[in-house]
C-alpha cells in the first residue's frame, strides 16, 4: 500500500525529467523509493550510470519540485543496488526513448 503522501510524491516526480532526455524520472525507472515523514521526504534514486553528468541537475530539479509540494526537507539518496538497467523503464519510457533515436 502506497501512502497518499507518497503517491503524491511519485506523481510530482513524473514532472521531473532526465536533463538529457525529456522522459520523467519515474518512466526512466530511476525512482527506487519514496519515504515521507511529515514535511520531510526522502527519495531514493538510481542513476543510469555511475558517471551521470546530470546528477546535480537531477537533484536540483527533484528538490525544487518537491518543495512546491510543501516538503521543507528533501533528502536524496543514490542507490546502486540493484543497478539501474533499461528493464526498469516503463513501456511509456521505452517508447519515448526510441522516439528520441536511442535504441532500447
Amino acid at each position: 500500500m502506497v501512502k497518499p503522501d507518497e503517491a503524491r510524491v511519485w506523481e510530482a516526480l513524473r514532472d521531473v525529467t532526465d536533463p538529457e532526455m525529456p522522459i520523467s524520472l519515474v518512466d526512466m525507472g530511476m525512482v527506487y523509493g519514496v519515504c515521507v515523514e511529515g514535511d520531510r521526504v526522502r527519495v531514493q534514486l538510481g542513476l543510469t550510470a555511475t558517471a551521470c553528468p546530470a546528477m546535480e541537475f537531477i537533484c536540483q530539479d527533484v528538490r525544487e519540485r518537491l518543495q512546491q509540494e510543501g516538503f521543507d526537507q528533501v533528502e536524496i539518496e543514490f542507490v546502486w543496488d540493484p543497478p539501474w538497467t533499461k528493464e526498469r523503464m516503463t513501456e511509456e519510457g521505452k517508447i519515448a526513448l526510441r522516439h528520441w533515436g536511442v535504441s532500447v
Binding site: P19, A54, W100, G101, V102
Partner: peptide, 9 residues
C-alpha cells in the same frame, strides 16, 4: 532530434 536534446543539456 537526438542532437537537439543533447545540446539542450
Amino acid at each position: 532530434a537526438k542532437v537537439d536534446k543533447e545540446e539542450t543539456f
